[in-house]
Amino acid sequence: MTTHDVLPALEREEATDPLVIAGETFTSRLLLGTGGVPSLEALERAVVASGSQLVTVALRRVEASTSGALLEVLDRCGVRLLPNTAGCRTAREALLTAQLAREAFDTSWVKLEVIGDETTLLPDAVELLDAAEHLVADGFIVLAYTNDDPILGRRLADAGCAAVMPLGSPIGSGLGIRNPHNIALLRDAVDVPVVLDAGIGTASDAALAMELGCDAVLLASAVTRARDPERMALAMRHAVEAGRLARGAGRIPRRWHAQASTPMEGLPEL
């Protein structure tokens, strides 16, 4: 094989290494949230640039909703919809919201969010696990937004969640991945896909998530609230691909001291 054959071969390998959630196949490992978009035009350009195939949506009272054209835009992009339960504080609220979303969007897939308070938007572990168990029993495909806690992640996977989605840092904070060690531990603790969800600020955060072994990244604000959402969406697409490649390539170990890459043998005495 010549060097000219290697790159196309690697790219083919990437294409045949899709993300699989609940038996559904996605060639893109970037999931995009639609919250915070300045306009539907900006959203459409960002979705296309991201290459995302799975996009989150929400339900709200009709008086507070964005334009009815949202779903037309997403239909045009050819993406699959992932309704969320954002804003729910209890398992009961999350179950009802998921059932309403199933009616409205005609999908049994749900991004389960059960938050503890408005300041941190951190998941309420007790209500989250309770909600996950009820939703799985009711036939939902549950992608659970969770704390970066490997034990809770395992509990959610054991409860039948199709994917476990640990936060990097609080929703919308842009603080990146505050505990990379826990994300790596969680990755090893479960057999279902792990999707880094929340806290991504910029492209290097998304790449790090993939380097830590995550199967995908879900982000919204980092793109929708960027100065140029379309450009950031493209950056995230490349970052996720780069991180995945780097993970597969195997990084060099960290060393305390330098290690010359140029050989010392044959060094002339000058």
């Binding site: 639609t34 919250g35 989150t56 009272r61 009815g68 949202l70 954002a86 929703i171 604000s221």
Partner: peptide
């Protein structure tokens, strides 16, 4: 409650 789709993370 009458609910409709909206953008959301």
């Amino acid at each position: 409650e009458v609910l409709v789709p909206t953008a959301g993370g």
